[in-house]
């Protein structure tokens, strides 16, 4: 029982990190950024190459923390680049066009990485897996705790940034009403770029953490987690940041208990079944508000 809860919280915190970027981007420009899962993959690969470079100099946890920061910066910039190249020119285009572009960006990232890194799965040079300890009936490792803690720190930092700073206020203003925000002197383009930077950096962090924990990365690893993060964002209330975190954890727990009850082959059925249930019964999600029709 406590093992199921811990499994759920652990995977859930990955979902939550990726879901945040999904939710932020949707909140601000109403775009389902399907390339977001692939930014996670990109983070894992950048981390992999950085760690390989660093392997002679330093290793273990300190190396991993440096690489985490480097990968976050790199994926953040990649996110800004994607927005600048693929989405900004389509700001006035119908939403469907942007959505299809997002799918295109997703494929470009996947197969671009495949061209450079190859299709073979890669094994991370630094691996986080200490001896498991028994805690309240669940087996967990100190490294797992560190990863979950890092995830929560990142989420907390993001929340503070959005709720307590000037930049965050500008983001919320655009989410509420882009035109009025523009009229009141907010640099809409710049703020959107910033949102992409933050969201992509979080996904990149999740990618490095997943790479270091599981040890195996490959170019398609972002696909399913992208869909799961989307599901988590919808469950929590898309566009709502605490909702995305809550949704990620809720999805992790749902999956864990679902598979605990019915067997592993039902996990994805369970996850995406929840997506459908929420879309039908409560499309605004747990914390979302009823959608206001926008002009």
């Amino acid at each position: 029982m406590s093992q199921l809860i811990w499994n759920g919280l652990f995977t859930g915190s990955f979902y939550a990190l990726v879901a945040l970027g999904y939710s932020m981007v949707y909140g601000i420009i109403r775009l389902l950024n399907f390339a977001h899962g692939d930014v996670y993959m990109l983070g894992a690969f950048i981390g992999y190459y950085c760690l390989t470079l660093l392997s002679g100099v330093t290793s273990g946890l300190p190396a991993l923390l440096i690489v985490l920061v480097v990968a976050m910066l790199a994926t953040g910039l990649a996110g800004v680049g994607i927005e600048r190249l693929a989405y900004r020119p389509l700001r006035q285009a119908p939403r469907l066009a942007v959505l299809i572009t997002a799918v295109g960006v997703s494929f470009s990232l996947e197969y671009g990485v495949r061209l450079i890194a190859g299709a073979d799965p890669k094994v991370y040079p630094v691996r986080l897996d200490g001896q498991p300890v028994e805690l309240l009936g669940a087996r967990l490792t100190a490294e797992q705790l560190v990863l979950v803690a890092v995830a929560f720190v990142l989420m907390g930092a993001l929340h503070t940034l959005v709720m307590r700073t000037r930049a965050g206020r500008a983001m919320r203003a655009i989410a509420a009403d882009p035109k009025a925000a523009h009229l009141s002197g907010i640099e809409v383009g710049q703020v959107i770029a910033r949102v992409f930077f933050l969201g992509s950096a979080l996904a990149g962090a999740a990618g490095v953490m997943a790479g270091a924990y599981y040890g195996r990365i490959e170019f398609l690893m972002g696909f399913v987690i992208g869909l799961k993060a989307f599901t988590a964002a919808v469950i929590g209330g898309i566009g709502n940041l605490p909702g995305a975190m809550l949704g990620g954890l809720a999805l992790g727990l749902l999956e864990s208990f679902g598979t605990g009850l019915t067997g592993g082959e039902w996990r994805d059925v369970f996850a995406f079944g929840c997506l459908i249930v929420f879309l039908v019964a409560r499309p605004q999600g747990i914390l979302g508000e009823k959608a206001v029709v926008r002009m």
């Binding site: 199921l4 499994n7 997943a210 398609l220 598979t259 605990g260 592993g264 082959e265 996990r267």
Partner: peptide, 17 residues
């Protein structure tokens, strides 16, 4: 028998089972 999802990284639920 226990089933895992091909291509997944997290096999926690299968391991628990």
């Amino acid at each position: 028998s226990v089933v895992i999802t091909k291509g997944e990284a997290e096999h926690g639920p299968a391991v628990t089972a």
